[in-house]
Design a protein around this nucleic acid. Structure first.
Lengths: 159, 159
DNA sequence: ATCCCTGCAAAGGGTTTGCAGACGC
DNA sequence: GCGTCTGCAAACCCTTTGCAGGGAT
């Protein structure tokens, strides 16, 4: 991890610390350890994978605390939680990363990210038309990734 | 139900029938009863609500068959399945209705539909850029519906 | 010292599965 | 008649909850 990353991580910890204070939650070793574990990953992971990862490093932590802390991190926008079609929740770090959306391959399950700023125009328009106050959006495109398209007999594309 | 609706329903049953045949699945009374129950609703419902609805009409059916049949209906695009942030699946009929997306109120849970054709431009562009074959998309905007905005102290909107 | 947070294990709830009987083909 | 589909209930799996001990404030 570079010095730059460490500065960022330190910044993030301060942010979390301030959030906990403001919300009247305690600053525990476990909560910061889980934050660090989350930011050591750059993928989309589920709660149990995070838990097992910490266990394998001999960190004493419980599933309950992992779930509890992930909720806190989601609430202060340091983590994003997704429910793709698989049914169980996957998480990703969210601080200092571009707002982005997801491609999910129905064949191999691979998750890719993309960013199209035009989504914001849609959000603004719909908010105005429907008198709805949008706080966040989730856009997910399902289909076949480049690898799986090649592996399979041709499918029909919607677009 | 009007004559027109009945013609549509009959058309849908034929479509389902053809799908079952082609896929080598049997055409059972239960499957068509579930299809009919789904198309008698115009809301977003979960599997158990559908099951209870059929039970209350004294139709003998099991949860297992409801789940099984909903899967079949999703596979042949007669039904769409959604996992909003609540965690459990909700379904809606999908045949002959405009492709649309959803607004979910974080306060009262109300689900509203909207349609913005510009989403297709995004899908096309991303498909091209990422070499990804898009077969479907899900766009969901979370926030506060008009009712809940009025009930609450002002929140900050992202858009 | 208070009482929130933790680990552990058990409970919870939506969904899936196993099995014996029923029925589409 | 064969093999799949059904109903029923138990199993499953991810997530939440209850409880007693521990640590942040």
């Amino acid at each position: 991890m570079t010095t730059n990353d460490e500065q960022t991580l330190s910044h993030i910890k301060q942010f979390f610390s301030a959030y906990l204070q403001k919300a009247g939650h305690r600053k525990t070793r476990e909560r910061f350890a889980i934050l660090e574990e989350v930011y050591s990953r750059d993928d989309h992971f589920d709660a149990d994978t995070l838990y097992m990862g910490m266990k394998s490093k001999n960190f004493r932590v419980s599933r309950a605390t992992v779930y509890n802390t992930l909720d806190l991190l989601v609430n202060c926008n340091l983590v994003t939680k997704h429910l793709f079609n698989s049914g169980n929740a996957v998480y990703e770090r969210a601080f200092g990363f571009y707002q982005h959306d997801h491609l999910v391959c129905k064949e191999c399950g691979k998750i890719t990210e993309f960013c199209d700023p035009r989504i914001h125009n849609i959000n603004r328009k719909v908010a105005e038309l429907m008198h709805f106050q949008v706080t966040e959006h989730k856009l997910t495109l399902y289909g076949l990734c480049a690898n799986c398209v090649n592996k399979n007999t041709p499918h029909e594309a919607e677009y």
